[in-house]
Amino acid sequence: MYTHLNSFRQESNYKTWLIRITLNKCKDYHRKWSIRNIIHKPVIDSNLYHDNSTNSTEQIVEQKEIGNEIIHAISSLKPTYKEILILYYLQDFKLKEISTTLNMNFHTTKTRFIRGKNFLKKELERRGYKDGSF
């Protein structure tokens, strides 16, 4: 800001200008592809893998492979679908809670959930998983 102080037009207070720049930088940061496409793997891992104490080693490895495939399939989706699916399936949110959390119309949330679920299903089928195989 110090280097661009000469671009300040003094149409508003300096504090207002500073706040506006800060807000715009925050919005830019959240729009970045790398930030919007993050999946918090520890949360997903703990939710995907079931109780390993009663499963054989082979079943545990198979569950982890399937879990990794699901993680990769979810990460390939658009952020608008990904965030809703993660909140619904992995965080056990209801659609109403998701719409409130994301500050989104309920019907928009429901539509994105259905579309995201269909995209996820197609992606998993493309990767070789058919209905009921995981």
Rank of each mutant, 00 (worst) to 15 (best):
W17P: 01
L18Y: 07
T22K: 08
L23E: 11
N24F: 02
N24K: 13
K25S: 03
K25H: 05
C26I: 12
C26A: 14
K27M: 06
K27W: 04
K27F: 05
K27I: 06
Y29Q: 01
Y29R: 07
R31V: 01
R31L: 12
R31M: 12
R31H: 13
K32G: 05
W33K: 11
W33D: 10
R36W: 01
N37T: 15
N37A: 06
I38M: 14
I38L: 11
I39F: 02
I39L: 10
I39H: 02
I39M: 02
H40P: 04
H40Q: 08
H40F: 13
K41G: 04
P42V: 09
P42F: 08
I44S: 03
D45E: 12
S46Y: 05
S46H: 09
N47H: 05
N47G: 10
L48A: 06
L48F: 06
Y49K: 01
Y49N: 01
Y49H: 02
H50E: 13
N52H: 05
N52D: 09
N52M: 15
N52W: 05
S53E: 12
N55P: 03
T57C: 01
T57A: 03
T57E: 01
T57V: 06
E58Y: 05
E58D: 14
Q59M: 15
Q59D: 13
I60T: 00
